Simulated scan of single mutants.
Amino acid sequence: MRNIRFNSLVRAAMTHEHAQNRLGITIFLNVVITVAQIIGGIISGSLALISDALHNLSDSLAVVLAYIANRLSGREKTSKSTFGFQRAEIIAAFINALVLVVISFYLMVEAIKRYFDPQVIDFRWMLWLGILGIAANGFSVFLLHADQNHNLNIKAAYLHLMGDAMTSVAVVVGALCIWLWDWYWIDPTITLLISFYLLLHTYKLLKESTEILMQFAPSNISVPEIARRLTEHDQVAQVYHIHVWRLTDRTVHFEAHVVLNSDLKLSETKIINKQLAQILIEEFEIQHITLQLECVK
């Protein structure tokens, strides 16, 4: 049993280290894309290319925050930070989402202005830098794919990069339309589509990270249902002062006062405590449980 736990810890540490390495590579790639597209957007006059660059800039910030948060979350607990720095990942995810919302609205305003003041665009810069964006972001998405389902913060960076890859495709399509048919209106149109896409995919992330920071109960857990289930135990008269919250996207905490039908010995209450905890773990997937047992006065 001890060997199994040790092996699990080793695998977790290796996964954490690999995630950091992958995030480091994506930081470098995003910085390169951002600088190249900003320069190309200014030279070509393409708002879509600049919007893609700003999107990449926000993603560079997102991945940097993800990298820092990933390192902080691995720090040991102290007497002052009794939970360690696990919340750093949620704060980073919240900031990432908030930045994307602000950038999306900014791009919408600039795109609408372009409809009233259209400009000639050099499609060649759009085409080649769009292809560069597809290649670099596609590779970054591939790197983070394995970790994105196990960590909300890495999932935030993953969604940023996935959005970048798709918007780079839109930039390439726009460049081809300008090249073949002189459709200069396609540039602000692509910018609006990118903005709407960002808002659509950011809402859920912003909502979830806000709920965790506000210590809301997870949406899949019903507090009345937990109280009802625990009072089905033949020794439990009442459950009150219930608190359910998530420390991170992966860990759910629970605390409550449990009133027993009779005044029992400490050894007997220990058994009841274990039985109630088992219900919470198996039926509600709650990992950290604190129960304060009382007796009917």
Rank of each mutant, 00 (worst) to 15 (best):
L143I: 07
I121R: 10
D147N: 14
D147W: 03
A156R: 02
D122P: 11
L129M: 05
M126G: 08
H150R: 15
A135S: 12
Q148R: 13
A157W: 04
A111V: 01
L152H: 08
F123D: 07
G133Q: 15
I131R: 06
W128N: 11
I134R: 06
V101A: 02
H150L: 10
Y106N: 04
I154E: 08
L161I: 10
S104K: 01
M162T: 13
I134N: 07
V102E: 04
V101D: 08
R124Q: 15
V102D: 05
E110N: 04
F123V: 02
S104H: 01
L159I: 11
A156G: 05
L159M: 12
L129H: 02
S104F: 03
L132E: 06
A156Q: 08
Y158P: 10
M162I: 11
H160W: 11
W125N: 07
I134P: 06
I112V: 06
D117R: 10
I121T: 06
W128I: 13
A157D: 04
E110R: 00
V101L: 04
V99R: 05
L129E: 12
K155Y: 05
F116T: 13
V99F: 03
H160C: 13
G130D: 10
N151Q: 11
L127M: 10
R114D: 08
G163R: 05
Y106P: 09
G163I: 00
F139G: 14
H150V: 10
W128D: 01
